[in-house]
């Protein structure tokens, strides 16, 4: 069983949703990033979504754009991101890592080389924003042959007919983008999220994660009541950014960021207690 399948299976038995935490790889530097990654499972992250830095993150808002630029300024590359995953795997064999980002750095490395190195490093899945179902032959199908899950984004603009196309080659879980927009911007209502999740449940047996616009433990909890995973990105990255001095890490960076993750995890873990009692 893959790490992602095992994680969702275990959480189902525990009757709770997963907390998926997003951080940008190498933000603001490699060593801080590795320390943060190593601390995330202990702070309550069930799945780590690791952003691959790119100069032109078209689907991201200002908070994650800035994280991308900090990581690049700190010398981060795709190769170093894979090294980072490998270093994390040396001490953690169970927490799934999903790489999120844009296609060009992978295209530049070459798809076969990337897949081989990612698999060897211990990556579990990929979320590539600018590879829709229409371009499945580029990376989606090769990644699945290589044993990496390709996780597809579903959005409010994905209609019922298109949903079939989008779901066809999705593996691992489905990521529902709860708003039409960029990361860290608006938030969807609880009702809109609940409606979307039930629409997706009818179309797939895969676990359903919901992200975009989820900033607080309370918001994470309300998503965790209806979905299988709640994804928090910009709020964590903003907390990290607030701890920096002139763009550089301080002794507060890792503990402050992990403190927010603990609060989010507490929200997610308590979410269904009332409902099942």
């Amino acid at each position: 069983m893959s790490r992602l399948d095992a994680t969702f299976h275990r959480l189902k038995l525990e009757n709770r949703a997963a907390l998926v935490t997003f951080v940008t790889s190498g933000d603001p530097d490699y060593h801080t990033s590795l320390a943060l990654l190593r601390g995330l499972p202990g702070a309550g992250a069930d799945i780590i979504e690791l952003g691959m830095a790119f100069t032109d993150p078209m689907a991201d808002g200002p908070v994650i754009q800035a994280a991308n630029l900090r990581a690049l300024a700190g010398g981060q590359t795709l190769a170093k991101t894979l090294t980072l995953v490998e270093a994390f795997r040396a001490t953690d064999q169970t927490t799934p890592i999903v790489l999120m980002g844009y296609y060009n750095p992978i295209h530049s490395m070459g798809v076969p080389a990337f897949l081989e190195r990612a698999k060897a490093a211990g990556v579990d899945g990929l979320i590539i924003v600018d590879l829709p179902a229409e371009e499945d032959s580029e990376l989606c199908l090769p990644s699945q042959s290589a044993g990496l899950d390709f996780i597809r984004l579903v959005t409010p603009t994905t209609d019922a007919y298109r949903l079939q196309t989008v779901m066809r080659h999705t593996r691992g879980f489905v990521y529902y983008v709860s708003i039409a927009g960029i990361t860290g911007a608006a938030s969807a209502t609880d009702q809109a999220i609940a409606d979307a999740v039930s629409r997706l449940r009818a179309a797939t047996d895969l676990p359903i994660a919901v992200g975009f616009g989820i900033r607080t433990p309370a918001a994470a909890a309300s998503v965790a009541r209806v979905a299988d995973a709640t994804v928090v990105g910009s709020a964590i990255v903003q907390t990290l950014a607030d701890s920096l001095l002139n763009g550089k890490a301080t002794p507060h960076t890792v503990p402050q960021t992990l403190a927010l993750v603990q609060e989010l995890a507490a929200g997610v873990r308590a979410a269904r207690l009332g409902a099942t009692a």
């Binding site: 179902a133 371009e135 983008v177």
Partner: peptide, 20 residues
């Protein structure tokens, strides 16, 4: 039909924009 000129072109956009 998929918007390719040889190996170039295509539709590399976020899912939100695909229907548009």
């Amino acid at each position: 039909a998929e918007g390719h000129f040889g190996i170039f072109g295509g539709r590399y956009v976020a899912e939100t924009l695909m229907p548009l």
